[in-house]
């Protein structure tokens, strides 16, 4: 399932520039392209061959139609991304999906949004136990299932 070799050629400078437009800076967290996330995006995309192929294809097509992207001003970059999103919705979706996943794995982001960052297991979460009193009203209702 894992094969990072075929994403070695991903243009990480271009990817960082796209990330800057996708997820802007906020508070003390820089824009996503300035957070050093591209290596992790390339690594993670290689964890499944199918996804990796789609992601790599997305980057290649974006680059082929936007060769000067990194030189554009931010407004023009947004326009270029919107055009790609419109023309290649599935490819753009893969790019956005992995960008969000990697951004929201970052400890700096967790700190800002107040997210623990723990994996779901093994610790799990606390919950108040079942309280039967919540059914008080429903228990007053007459049975209404259809008898046959």
């Amino acid at each position: 399932m894992t094969n990072n070799a075929s994403t070695k050629n991903v243009n990480e400078e271009l990817l960082a520039a796209i990330l800057d437009r996708l997820i802007p800076a906020i508070d003390d967290v820089p824009s996503a392209g300035n957070m050093g996330l591209t290596t992790e995006i390339v690594r993670l995309s290689g964890q499944q061959a199918r996804f990796q192929g789609i992601f790599k294809n997305a980057m290649e097509i974006f680059e082929s139609t936007n060769s000067e992207f990194v030189l554009l001003d931010s407004e023009a970059q947004v326009t270029a991304i919107r055009k790609f999103e419109s023309n290649e919705p599935d490819l753009f979706s893969s790019l956005l999906t992995i960008s969000y996943i990697v951004y929201y794995k970052d400890a700096r982001v967790h700190k800002r949004i107040g997210w623990s960052g723990r994996t779901p297991q093994p610790e799990g979460n606390p919950m108040e136990p079942w309280d039967d009193s919540i059914l008080e009203t429903q228990r007053e209702r007459e049975p209404f299932w259809r008898k046959v």
Partner: peptide, 22 residues
């Protein structure tokens, strides 16, 4: 669910659609 990559895994290697999971 105990992997650092669980949110990626949910959409790929552990996706419920066999055409996606592959």
């Amino acid at each position: 669910s105990a992997s650092e990559d669980y949110e990626f895994e949910m959409l790929t290697n552990w996706a419920p659609d066999p055409n996606v999971r592959q």
